[in-house]
Nucleic acid binder design. Structure first.
Length: 113
RNA sequence: GGAGCAGGGCAAACGAUCGCCGGGUUUUUUGGACGAUGGCCCGGAGGAAAGUCCGAACACCACAGGACAGGGUGCUCCUUAAUCAGGAGUCGCGGUAACGCGAAGGAAAGUGCAACAGAGAGAAGACCGCCGGAUGGUUCCAUCGUGGGGCCAGGCCGGUAAGGGUGAAACGGUGUGGUAAGAGCGCACCAGUUUCCCGGGUGACCGGGAAAGCUUUGUAAACCCCACCCGGUGUAAGACCAAAUAGGGGAGUGCUUGAGGAUGGUCCGUCCGAGCUCCCGGGUAGGUCGCAAGAGAUAGCGGGUAACCGUUAUCCACAGAUGAAUGAUCGUUGCCCGGUUUUGGGUAAACCCGAAAACGGGAACAGAAUUCGGCUUAUGCCCUGCUCCGGCC
């Protein structure tokens, strides 16, 4: 059984790291999300989520972040290792419910090489 | 049954699985501490957490005292830590009513403004109308002549604010006297203003009476005047710890009589060579604190119309993140909406109201960020009381 934990060390927390990632990383996107990713020096993949105020109000932004975290937590074993990944939400993403969010992210994560 | 007014309540519940944040405790790691890992236990968004519109606590900065400027408040009394808050009232306005709304001091300090319409709009004004006067024409009566009356015509001179018309507003209303016609021009009553007196109320104010001048428009969310109040910035406040690198100050030591470094196990040797060592303060990244138990909640009793106050008891690891936790999936039940079917009542029926069943759909507004007290705005459902209208007895 693979662990489904998702703790603080599995996340990108510093502004510096986000800036570095967006400078160096590769991007894939669809109409709801943008993924920015690059290899890291750690053993695990780490996740960061960016939802700006343009997307919606606080409740909607929180919902998107929780869906993204949940997807990452449940599907880590299927994902590539040694990556820093930033999920950037676009404005369209507030219209998705949980199952559609998961489907959309799954399709998008397949594009990561 | 319909329409409305006021007040209050809830913010789906339970279970399973996988997670997140904080705290306590414990295991392993370690010489020990911190930390990390695993286990167990406890806690983890709102009525508005929102808008950031007021008020405070707290912190730092500024500050002898006063005046001006600027800003705020503006019926009364009370409550509160405090307020542009709240309660109870007064007055005015709206509503049939329950009830609601009001920046509600001063317009007889001064200045300004009052569109359009209208004759005239602030010590107002004569357009129509009404009245008087002189003039012209005509006619009637009387007459020697002079004269008197009626009608018509227009312009001229003057009076008049009662009537018409305009306007949001035209300098009180009704009646009567008066007059050429009119007019607060006089008088009576009514309304209003100011002053004074009496009574009630803590007070705003209310009730009654007298006098005066005879009536003095509106606007102060226009300037202004009066009374009272007011330093500034906000937890990214602010306090503390503090790398690496660069640089500042001081002390010691050294500059061919060579500190220190490289080579090396060490010494000699060889090479490089003007710095090296220590201390101090400032300070960046980063971190810690601020940062969670209080103007606290619930219940009882006492005081008060009430806001609220006093007192007693009980409860509380009542969230503390910082790229920011409080979630996801599944199941059961409940809630709301929709049409369908069955059924009860008001009835002869249409129609209306209620109940049940299965089916389908939905679950609002919204996420703590230093903390409290208010206000405002957003929003789903439920309950209670009251008012008006209609029907039946």
């Amino acid at each position: 059984m693979v662990s489904q934990q998702f703790k603080k060390q599995d996340r990108i927390l510093k502004r510096k790291e986000y800036v570095e990632l967006s400078d160096k990383g590769k991007k894939v996107h669809n109409r709801h999300f943008v993924l920015i990713y690059s290899e890291n020096s750690k053993e695990k993949s780490r996740l960061g989520i960016t939802v700006t105020k343009k997307v919606g109000k606080a409740v909607q932004r929180n919902k998107i972040k929780r869906y993204c975290r949940e997807f990452f937590r449940l599907n880590r074993s299927a994902l590539p290792e040694n990556r820093d990944i930033n999920i950037v939400a676009k404005k369209q993403s507030i219209y998705l419910d949980s199952t559609k969010t998961f489907q959309t992210l799954e399709n998008l994560f397949k594009k990561i090489d």
